[in-house]
Simulated scan of single mutants.
Amino acid sequence: MVRLPLTPAEVERGQRLGAVLRRARGERSMLGTALDAGISPETLRKIESGRVATPAFPTVAAIADVLGLSLDVVWAEISRPGAGAGGDARLAS
C-alpha cells in the first residue's frame, strides 16, 4: 500500500490537534498521560508536536478520554478554518 503525501490542510490540522492536546495536558506529565492512554510517550510527543498529523482515531480517542476532552470539542477546534496551532482553544468537556 502506498501512502499519499499529506495535504497542507492535513498537516495544519495535525498541528492544531497537537496544540489542543498539549494545552489540555497542561502540567500533567507526558509519560503519565501516554501510559494512561495506552500509548508510548514517543507517540504522544509526535502527536503533540504535529509530526504525526493523522493519528489513528482510537489513539486520539484514548488521549482525549485521559485528558477529559470531548471528541466533539477536539474536532471543532481542529476543524476551524484559519485556526492556527497556537490559537485559543476552548477545552470544556
Rank of each mutant, 00 (worst) to 15 (best):
M1N: 10
M1I: 10
V2N: 14
V2G: 03
R3I: 14
L4S: 14
L4Y: 15
P5T: 11
L6A: 14
L6E: 14
T7V: 07
T7Q: 08
A9N: 09
A9C: 03
E10T: 04
E10R: 08
V11C: 07
V11E: 03
E12T: 12
E12N: 09
R13N: 02
G14R: 03
G14S: 04
Q15S: 09
Q15K: 13
L17W: 03
L17C: 07
G18Y: 03
A19T: 04
L21D: 00
R22F: 04
R22K: 14
R22H: 08
A24C: 09
A24R: 12
G26Q: 13
G26R: 11
E27T: 13
E27S: 13
R28Y: 03
S29D: 09
G32M: 03
G32N: 15
G32I: 04
T33F: 03
T33I: 10
L35N: 05
A37G: 07
G38I: 09
I39R: 00
E42C: 09
T43D: 05
T43R: 06
L44R: 00
R45W: 13
K46V: 02
I47R: 01
I47A: 01
G50S: 09
R51E: 15
V52F: 12
V52M: 05
V52S: 10
A53K: 09
P55E: 07
P55L: 04
F57Q: 10
F57N: 06
V60G: 00
A61D: 09
A61Y: 01
A62V: 10
I63C: 05
I63Y: 01
D65C: 08
V66M: 12
V66E: 07
L67D: 10
G68M: 04
L69S: 02
L69Y: 10
L69D: 05
S70E: 04
S70K: 05
D72T: 08
V73D: 04
V73Q: 09
V73H: 06
W75Y: 14
W75R: 05
A76H: 12
A76G: 07
A76C: 06
E77I: 01
S79M: 09
S79I: 00
S79C: 07
R80H: 14
R80A: 15
P81D: 13
G82Y: 08
G82N: 13
G82P: 06
A83I: 04
A85G: 13
G86C: 06
G87L: 01
D88F: 04
A89D: 11
R90E: 14
R90Y: 05
A92H: 07
A92F: 05
A92T: 11
A92R: 06
A92C: 07
S93V: 07
